[in-house]
Structures are given as structure tokens and as C-alpha cells.
Amino acid sequence: MAHLNYEEGKKVVFKGFVILGIVTIAEVMVALVGKGYIIDGFHLPRFIMYSLMITMSFYKAFYIVFEFMHMRYEVPGLVRSVLMPTLLLIWAVIAFFSEGNTWYHWRKKVNDRPISQFSRAASSHSENSLYHIMDTKNQAQEKPMHAESEKKDSTLEKTHK
């Protein structure tokens, strides 16, 4: 199935090694330069840094699949049948991430509520101050045990705000 002869194949392998190595180093450099480790006081904007790193990772993935896994030499039907289903993940990524973002905003809304409405107990050594509002003893005693109703209540309050 290899459409290259042996010597060519060997060259491709070496080339692949060099390309993957260079791209990896480039990624790491972008990460370090972007976050200001190499040049003091110089930061790349997050958007540029992230899109560069993501693009390079996808290039690496493409190279591994197409050269190392010999996808380039397979018939187009096989390539399509394996790669096209992964497109389904695009919508999954959009939907899931937007959900994550929503949870963040809703939690923030709950935490930013005026505290006076609630009898706030000292949030002793709660591991994460962001959730201390939920820690109020009164609330907890009114609805013991019912984790789910707790959740729904707070959701309701969130949406009503």
C-alpha cells in the first residue's frame, strides 16, 4: 500500500520527525513568549497565542494522521468515512463550551447577589469563596438532604434576576 519506495519512505519518516519536532518547539515557544517568560514584559494577546497553538496542534494531528497513519495513501472514501464523523464534534464543542460559559455567568450572578438578603454565616474555611453564598446555614436547614431542589431553587432565582 505504500506508494513510495523504501528510500523515499525513509525520507518521509525523517522529514516527519523534523516537522513534528519543530512545530512542537514552536508551540512551546509561543506559550513561553506569549506569557512573558522569554522577553521581560512582553505578552502576546491571548487570542493570538491560543489560535496559534491550536492551529499548530491541528497541523500536528493532520500530519500524524496523513503521513504516519498513511491516510494520504488511502482511497478518498476511507479518508472521508473516518474523518467526516469527527465534524459532528464541532457542534458538540460549541454547545458544550457555551454551556460551560453559561454556568460560569449564572454562578457569578448568584454570588454577586446582595448578601443582605441572606443570613450569611461565616464562610469559615470554605475551599472556594465563590460558593460561600450557598453555605448559609438557614438555607441548608430549611431543605435538608435535597440536593436537587437546592439546585433548582438557585436556578430559579438566577433566572428571575
Binding site: F96, E127, M134, M145, H146, A147, K151
Partner: peptide, 20 residues
């Protein structure tokens, strides 16, 4: 898991989401 109360005690399990 996040924000779970059992017998009035907050569980030490935060940051996740059942919706996930």
C-alpha cells in the same frame, strides 16, 4: 457535583456540574 447539602452540611465537592 457542586453545592450539595446532606443533613444541612455542605459537601466538600464543588466545581462540577450535573448538567455536564
Amino acid at each position: 457535583l457542586s453545592d450539595i447539602f446532606i443533613n444541612g452540611q455542605a459537601l466538600d465537592r464543588i466545581g462540577g456540574s450535573p448538567i455536564l
